[in-house]
Design a protein around this nucleic acid. Sequence first.
DNA 1: TGATAATTGTTATGCATCATATCAAAATAG
DNA 2: CTATTTTGATATGATGCATAACAATTATCA
Lengths: 167, 167
Amino acid sequence: MTVSRAANEAAKAQHPARKDAEDASIELGELSELLGYTLKRAQLKIFEDFLRCMAPLQLTPAQFSVLLLLDRNPGRNQTEIANTLGILRPNFVAMLDGLESRDLCARIRSVNDRRSHHLVLTDKGKAVLARAKKLVAAKHEARLNELLGADNRAALVGMLAKIAEQF
Amino acid sequence: MTVSRAANEAAKAQHPARKDAEDASIELGELSELLGYTLKRAQLKIFEDFLRCMAPLQLTPAQFSVLLLLDRNPGRNQTEIANTLGILRPNFVAMLDGLESRDLCARIRSVNDRRSHHLVLTDKGKAVLARAKKLVAAKHEARLNELLGADNRAALVGMLAKIAEQF
DNA sequence: TGATAATTGTTATGCATCATATCAAAATAG
DNA sequence: CTATTTTGATATGATGCATAACAATTATCA
């Protein structure tokens, strides 16, 4: 599980009285100004919190993104969905297997092109997605707005999107 | 290699005239407003560019961060360095083996505590780090400033650091 | 002091992610 | 009709990340 790392840190925090005690704490130096470094660390934290908020539904960020896409774009095939999410087709197969085995989505053989599958959410899938959205909004994103402020949060997302697209 | 994905995309870009052609392009929906999603994608792009810039020195972001830390904090042991970088000690062993086999750093048995190693950069390690810093500044970070502007870039790093620490 | 516990580096191992090659079935191009 | 391409799928390997366990060493404390 992904909580273990946090639990590990928490365990250390309970023993501040040791030779351990950060021993003249280490200098990060230019590391703290490196975008890649902060980016990676922030991403891990965000995913960790996402998993925590989504624990009752047992959805990973990747799975959530698939459900969102299928909801907005019903009937697309695996290649299309996988491509827009940056998932390689071979790896997307097992992922879909998992969602399908939980009856969250379904593969429907296309009549036009019998190689491909139309992907759709099941009713259960739609229900789970609706609950998931609420959890994300209420627990995850709300906490972000609290930490950064709505304006800053929007600006942050904007800059990240710009990097993701134009870099 | 990590370039292959980009090469793959490039290959597709050369064939815009297919049934493929993004076929009434897929709606991202609320995905584009999800911080976790943009964060992950931006992080991948940044790491990809970092690797490209650092190709002549063959340093990964993780390796670069280790060299930086060793430079600023010579004589620390493996546990200390690994902990501050969020690397688990078992995984740090192989990583150090790699750097040490390239003569970039060295493990020096401590006389006070013969269990631990003092970690230091070799002369070659210092030289490589110096070149690496220049590459990062000239190629990588410069491009970011160009895309976002220096002020926005600083604000971005600040917000990410806040998330990484306080979330 | 001496028995017990904790720490350090290490190995082994498992799981998840990611990437490539390859394949059969089906569709498309020429 | 033949050759190529596309789709979903399988097998496979590399890498990152996490846990358990171990020997050597050090710290704790009764």
